[in-house]
């Protein structure tokens, strides 16, 4: 366990708790909950891309899979504890199988991107065709383009009538996000996480040292899938309907944009990127003067040109630069590295 890697974690969690109580002063709970869910989704890609070097164009596949797994099982079971666990387990297993197929096949960067993209598209196309009555799992009809409405939303474990919604759903999601953040931090500080970063830096060298990079990448990919599935389940509980749009190309692209803008190689970056861009999309959607997509595209172009490493890593290095100058004897620390531009 590398304790120095955990040095920042308590401060981040403390800041997170402050934000958790401060944010409702500005925005309503309904919007905030969605932003937190987006943050968790971005965190999942931030983990596997920023630390594992695995560019996944199809994180939306696990997100949607988690949402659908939750909706289908909640409609059948009528209590949310088991569906919640299933919504993590199913994307986890699916991501592990998909990852194993790719990594044991020695697929690299861009080929991997195509496979993950294609899997998302298959889900999207398939779910859109499931409108007929023959597509029924237990009591849940898949519903095709219209999706699945009317299932049990999140409740207090064991008590199906005690719904968690609005204000309490927001706090629940935020606490879950913080817990996931701490768990991911612990994972990255563990030997497994450190080897994952080593694989990102130089896979050949790690393999020559005797580690099985294929298995480790598959497991890391599966963990990312599980987190995305959890985000999907929370989304399903928030939106109270799941539609094939969750699997869409736009959704996948959005996750990647959050990570790029927020900054790869950090965990806070993607979360902030998701929250800020998610809010911006929400705010821009309320006016008609400028097209929403246009502004998003412009922001991405400007960030990539001006801050190629993303906002948070640039801020961190700027901050460290200035604090070093103030106290010459201060600790020298290397800023987090982003992945290579071609990786």
């Amino acid at each position: 366990m590398d304790r120095s890697a955990l040095r920042d974690a308590p401060w981040v969690v403390a800041a997170g708790i402050i934000v958790m109580f401060a944010a409702p002063l500005i925005l309503n709970f309904y919007t905030l909950t969605l932003l937190v869910i987006y943050g968790m989704l971005a965190l999942s890609l931030g983990l596997i891309w920023g630390f594992g070097g695995i560019l996944c164009f199809g994180q939306a596949a696990f997100y949607g899979l988690g949402a659908y797994a939750y909706a289908i099982s909640a409609a059948n079971i009528g209590e949310s504890t088991v569906p919640m666990l299933l919504a993590i387990a199913i994307p986890f297993v699916f991501a592990f199988l998909l990852g194993a197929m790719m990594f044991y096949g020695r697929l690299t960067d861009v080929y991997m991107g195509v496979i993950t993209l294609v899997v998302t598209l298959i889900f999207f196309r398939f779910m859109n065709t499931t409108a007929g009555p023959e597509y029924q799992i237990g009591q849940a009809r898949l519903g095709g383009y219209n999706g699945i409405p009317g299932y049990q939303t999140l409740n207090v474990p064991g008590d199906a009538s005690a719904y968690i919604w609005d204000e309490s759903l927001y706090y629940t999601c935020f606490v879950i996000l913080l817990v996931v953040y701490v768990l991911v931090r612990l994972l990255l500080a563990s030997p497994f996480g450190r080897i994952a970063v080593a694989i990102r830096e130089n896979e050949n060298r790690v393999e020559l040292m005797g580690y099985d990079a294929r298995l480790r990448k598959s497991v890391l990919f599966a963990i990312g899938g599980g987190i995305a599935g959890l985000a999907g389940a929370l989304y399903a509980s928030w939106a109270e309907i799941v539609t094939p749009g969750l699997f869409s190309l736009g959704q996948s692209a959005e996750i990647i944009i959050w990570c790029i803008v927020g900054g790869l190689g950090t965990l806070v970056g993607p979360v902030l990127g998701a929250a800020v861009l998610g809010y911006l999309k929400f705010a821009l959607g309320q006016q008609t003067a400028v097209d929403n997509v246009l502004v998003m595209g412009l922001i991405l172009v400007v960030v990539v040109l001006v801050l190629p490493r993303g906002v948070v890593p640039s801020l961190i290095s700027a901050f460290r630069h200035s604090s070093r100058r103030r106290e010459p004897g201060g600790r020298r620390r290397r800023g987090p590295r982003g992945v290579r531009a071609d990786g």
């Binding site: 096949g105 020695r106 697929l107 690299t108 080929y111 496979i115 294609v118």
Partner: peptide
């Protein structure tokens, strides 16, 4: 998918 798996 099949094609890329067989011909990486």
């Amino acid at each position: 998918i099949v094609l890329l798996r067989l011909l990486p």
